[in-house]
Amino acid sequence: MKRSLQSPVRPHPLLFATSGVALIAVTYGLARLGYGLFLPAFSAAFPLTPAVSGLLASGASILYCVSAGIGFRHASLRPRGVAGLAGLSAALGSLGVAAAPSTPVFVGGVLLAGMGAGFASPAMVELVRRNADSSAQGRLQSVVNSGTGFGVVLAGALSLVLGEAWRLAWVLVAVLAAASMLAVLRLDRSSDRPSARPAGRWAAPSLVTRSSVHGLARPLCGALVFGSGSAAVWVYGRATLEQAGGMGVSLSAGAWIALGLGGAGAAAVSRRLAEHSIRVTWPLSTLVTAAATALVGTAPGSLLLAYAAAFSFGLAYTAATSVLILWASAVAADSAAGTSVLFIALVLGQAAGASLTGLLLQEGTAAAFLVAALACATSAVVAVPTTAGVARVR
């Protein structure tokens, strides 16, 4: 990226963090998760059977892992370049969705747009590290990660206001992706030159070396299991509220907005997440996610309980992913690379969980969601740091 995109003035770290929130909001909450929200409108415009829709969602997850792997490899040395890839892929993919004249072009747009999220997380982890004092990094990492919730809120609002005019909605997503990327690059006060890296961190990390995942065995296991359980709400939550709960389109979109508000609310607890031990924050966030998942599946017909469950799920899920970032920062040799590995495990778990939940839904909604809740609860146990590792993860 050209140096002219960097501000000569040293902005307050919170101002830079705000731009990071915007980039995460667009790449995750809109470009990636917006597919599910607009799926009814997409299905009306293109011949998307449920099977094809599921395959497309799986393909998007696979390409997310590819882009996260690229971010793993390069974000520690070239975070500005990876941030640029995040904004460009989300913007160009969203434009492809908006202008798609045929199903193949539409599919390509969806896949490209979803890759932006994989680039965004490792880039922002490294850029926050470079732009904030060490005492504030944990809190700001959680604040930036809460951007997913803001994006989900905006996605829900767009689906309500522009549900049928979905092409216009995705043009707006493209514009927001480009604008947030430029804001990040403009407000970044760090250098993208190798000389800015701490001593001993000149080489790009590799996905295949033992050092890349050293110390991450427990959070990797936790992320994989947690992802498998969280997929039920992300993939089937809105459909469950409409089909099993009898909610109308507007009410189910409102539940999605409540979920996003919960995710955005995770920013309010960012300081507490950074201050408390991961032995406390990880089990707490995953167990609340489990309870909310169970409630969605067992009480979809209760408006009050469904909205409360959606809000709680958004808050707890976002908090859990923030804890994964803090965990990677605490134990991994490279925080951006460690975050990428954990988020890849999370998404792979979601891909597997989506298929399993889909099969279980044939036996009953409550049973499928209770199994998903059990997976979330199990992740609270399998990933708790050992006593020997407490010092490293606070």
Rank of each mutant, 00 (worst) to 15 (best):
T240P: 05
L305N: 03
A354M: 12
V82Q: 04
L305H: 02
C376S: 10
A299N: 02
G84K: 00
A366C: 02
V381Y: 13
S379M: 08
Y317P: 07
A380P: 00
L374D: 04
A179T: 13
V296P: 05
R193M: 10
A60M: 12
A377N: 07
E242H: 00
A268C: 11
F226P: 07
F16K: 05
V208E: 12
S159D: 14
L127V: 03
A383M: 03
G215W: 03
T281Q: 03
E126T: 08
Q137F: 06
V280D: 10
G297E: 06
A290I: 10
A231G: 03
A132P: 08
V153H: 00
A17Q: 08
D188L: 03
Y317H: 14
A68C: 01
P104W: 10
L374G: 15
D334R: 11
F343V: 05
A291I: 10
V105K: 05
L251K: 02
Q141K: 01
L359T: 14
L251H: 02
G248Y: 04
S180F: 09
F106C: 08
C65Q: 06
I257E: 00
L356E: 10
L324Y: 09
A383V: 08
V393R: 11
L356S: 05
F38V: 07
G389M: 12
A274G: 14
A306N: 11
L224H: 01
A264W: 00
